[in-house]
Amino acid sequence: MNANEERTLAHTPDPATAAFLAHRNLLFTVAYEMLGSAADAEDVLQETWLRWSGVDLAVVRDQRAYLVRVTTREALIRLRTLSRRKESYVGPWLPEPLLTTPDVAADVELAESVSLAMLLVLETLAPTERAVFVLREVFDLPYGEIADAVGKTSAAVRQIAHRARAHVAARRPRGSVSSAESRAAIAAFHRAVETGDPRGLLDLLAPDVVFLGDGGGRARAALAPVVGVDAVADLLRGSLPRIGATMTVTSAQVNGHPAVVLYRGDGIDTVFALRVDHGLITGVYAVRNPEKLARAVHETVLRR
């Protein structure tokens, strides 16, 4: 649903429209966390609206729960389609980066759940596990509501949630990171991009740092993960551009965390996000696929 459609709906003061718009940011966040793609999340919301607009509101006891249930089911359908699409994707697949509002960073749990690092962890879950984890751990929905959304019993959902939590705990960022450490890492990376020289970054790169570049076959990017401080430093040394008249670099809040955005002319060339563990950069994520950068030109509102 685009901005014009929202404005049209907003001028139609019927109860179904009002309820949908009241929960829209929440529904988008649910879909995005399940899919890692804003474009696909928007398609899910369109399908949710089409189903919601035909519902008899008199029989809906809890509108929020009903809308979340429909969104989850539509996202599960889309997730399976997206999984097949990724099989033929050129190079590493990274989530679509979002320029986020300051309140997302202020909500620590929400910011962690939508970080590129966490979304990559969620990619390792099976579709139903991902849905259960997101609805329980991020949105704190009761097991009964989750069971209705994923078509399982409450007992089965509890088992799935336990399994998903263990899976995510083994793969999520390994230690808490202070805001000062995060700022130091992003500042060093910003300088490296600005100067084209990664030497000032070397002390902050973990020995097992991983670089993932997502060009999707539409922009130049490493076609496989690059692992290790020396290999990543060499890659950065050879690929970071010299900032000149046609290129600029800035810092921004992306998915609730500081990131570096490289502009070429009037358009975004690359969004760089970092994973930081115990003060060291363990992951560098460079999104260059132009299809994934359109949403990063304006802020996206996320809600729990």
Rank of each mutant, 00 (worst) to 15 (best):
M1K: 05
N2L: 09
A3L: 15
A3W: 11
E5H: 06
E6N: 06
E6M: 06
H11C: 11
H11I: 10
P13R: 09
T17A: 09
F20H: 04
R24F: 05
A31P: 07
A31S: 14
E33P: 06
M34Y: 01
M34F: 05
G36K: 00
A39E: 15
E42P: 08
T48E: 03
W49K: 00
W49T: 01
L50Q: 15
R51W: 08
W52P: 00
D56V: 05
D56H: 11
V59F: 07
R61D: 10
T71M: 09
T72G: 03
R73K: 12
T81S: 12
G91F: 04
W93T: 02
L94T: 02
T100E: 04
D103P: 00
D103W: 04
D107A: 06
V108F: 13
A111I: 07
A111P: 07
E112N: 10
S113D: 07
S115R: 01
A117Y: 08
L119I: 05
V121A: 01
V121E: 00
A126L: 11
T128K: 12
A131I: 06
F133H: 03
E137S: 09
F139R: 07
F139G: 06
G144Q: 15
G144Y: 10
E145G: 01
E145V: 05
E145S: 08
I146Y: 01
I146C: 03
D148W: 01
V150E: 04
K152V: 04
A156Q: 13
V157S: 09
R158N: 08
A161I: 05
R165V: 08
H167N: 13
V168F: 11
V168D: 12
A170P: 02
R172V: 14
R174F: 12
S178R: 02
S178W: 03
S179D: 11
A180H: 15
A184W: 00
A184K: 02
A185L: 15
I186V: 15
H190C: 09
R199D: 15
L201N: 07
D203P: 07
A206S: 03
V209C: 15
G213R: 01
G217H: 13
A224D: 07
P225Q: 06
V226M: 07
V227W: 12
A231Y: 05
A231W: 06
V232G: 01
A233L: 08
L235F: 14
L236W: 03
L236C: 06
P241N: 14
R242F: 04
V249I: 11
T250M: 09
N255H: 04
H257D: 01
V261P: 00
Y263K: 11
R264N: 14
R264T: 11
G265D: 14
I268Y: 00
D269Q: 13
D269P: 10
D269S: 15
A273Q: 10
L274Y: 13
L274F: 14
R275D: 13
R275A: 14
R275L: 10
L280T: 10
L280Q: 13
I281Q: 02
V284M: 14
Y285L: 04
A286L: 10
A286P: 00
A286T: 02
P290T: 12
P290A: 11
A294K: 13
R295C: 07
V297S: 07
E299Y: 03
T300A: 14
T300V: 15
V301Y: 02
V301C: 04
L302T: 10
R303K: 13
R303G: 04
R304T: 12
